[in-house]
């Protein structure tokens, strides 16, 4: 867009508001870093004046100092400008330190989602191991194909949710939803055949689908909504086939439900 012409601005009002909010968040995020750099500079200055560092000390220019401290802001803005998918829920991150502390907002939803996906990956693996070990009786090839493919999908989904976290400077979640895992462990102990495994898998798929549908209603970042929207229907498809296998009507409801959605205060930890 060139200055002085009347071309339409290629950004929506919502995006503009979000960009402005993000810019303000980044400003506030970077201020502590600027203060720290100022402290360092002042310290260096004091050392120079007292002759500790001698003439080899590299003096940071005002321009260099401002550019260095502002790099995080510029980098952040570059990502924001790349599109809404990269805005990374900065409103949710601004109150937390990178990679630590309690996550809030979009990032809390993404963390629970990643933990649910990790739990699904582990549960399918346990199911496949049980099938291989012969504890489920005869396991038809179609069932193994289902479990293997669904497990891979959940790995991909975990990576997608984790990208929401890592793009915002947080650690990826490699742990599982321990709150749900407690129920899964109890149920898995009673799984003796393919039908039992399918019922357990159906419960997990329905929980994930409900959680993401619920998440779509609360997520603020367009990119995070796109992730949820691209994944939720796939979990629903897994559930449909599981219902079919179990002899249930495969599309039992005209509208997806949020009942059973996991809250963001679920406990997340190592399996």
């Amino acid at each position: 867009m060139s200055a002085g012409n009347n071309d339409p601005m290629p950004v929506s009002e919502r995006e503009l508001a979000q960009l402005t909010g993000d810019m303000d968040d980044m400003h506030h995020d970077v201020m502590p870093a600027m203060h720290a750099r100022a402290e360092e500079w002042a310290e260096l200055n004091r050392e120079m004046r007292s002759g500790v560092s001698g003439p080899t000390v590299h003096v940071t220019s005002r321009r260099h100092f401002l550019m260095g401290s502002g790099a995080a802001v510029l980098g952040g803005l570059a990502l924001v400008a790349c599109g809404s998918s990269k805005k990374g829920s900065s409103s949710a991150t601004s109150s937390t330190a990178a990679g630590s502390g309690k996550l809030t907002g979009d990032l809390a939803v993404a963390a629970v989602a990643a933990a649910l996906e990790n739990l699904a990956v582990g549960t399918y693996q346990a199911g496949l191991d049980a099938a291989t070990g012969g504890t489920l009786g005869t396991v038809p090839p179609a069932v193994t194909a289902f479990a293997t493919t669904a497990q891979q999908h959940h790995k991909d989904h975990a990576a997608a949710w984790n990208s929401v976290l890592t793009d915002a400077g947080k650690h990826a979640v490699t742990a599982v939803d321990l709150t749900v895992k407690a129920d899964v462990d109890r149920a898995f102990a009673g799984v003796k055949d393919v039908g039992g495994l399918a019922r357990l898998a159906l419960s997990l798929e329905n929980t994930a689908a409900a959680t993401y549908l619920d998440g779509i209603g609360v997520l603020g970042d367009t990119g995070a909504i796109q992730v949820a929207a691209a994944i939720q229907p796939v979990e629903m498809q897994h559930a449909a086939i599981l219902n079919f296998v179990l002899g249930n009507y495969p599309v039992p409801d005209p509208f997806s439900k949020t009942e059973g959605a996991r809250p963001t205060d679920d406990e997340i930890g190592a399996a």
Binding site: A209, P233, A239, D253, S256
Partner: peptide, 10 residues
């Protein structure tokens, strides 16, 4: 969003 998953199930 509550409808997209149902169509995907179909």
């Amino acid at each position: 969003a509550s409808i997209m998953g149902v169509e995907a199930q179909h």
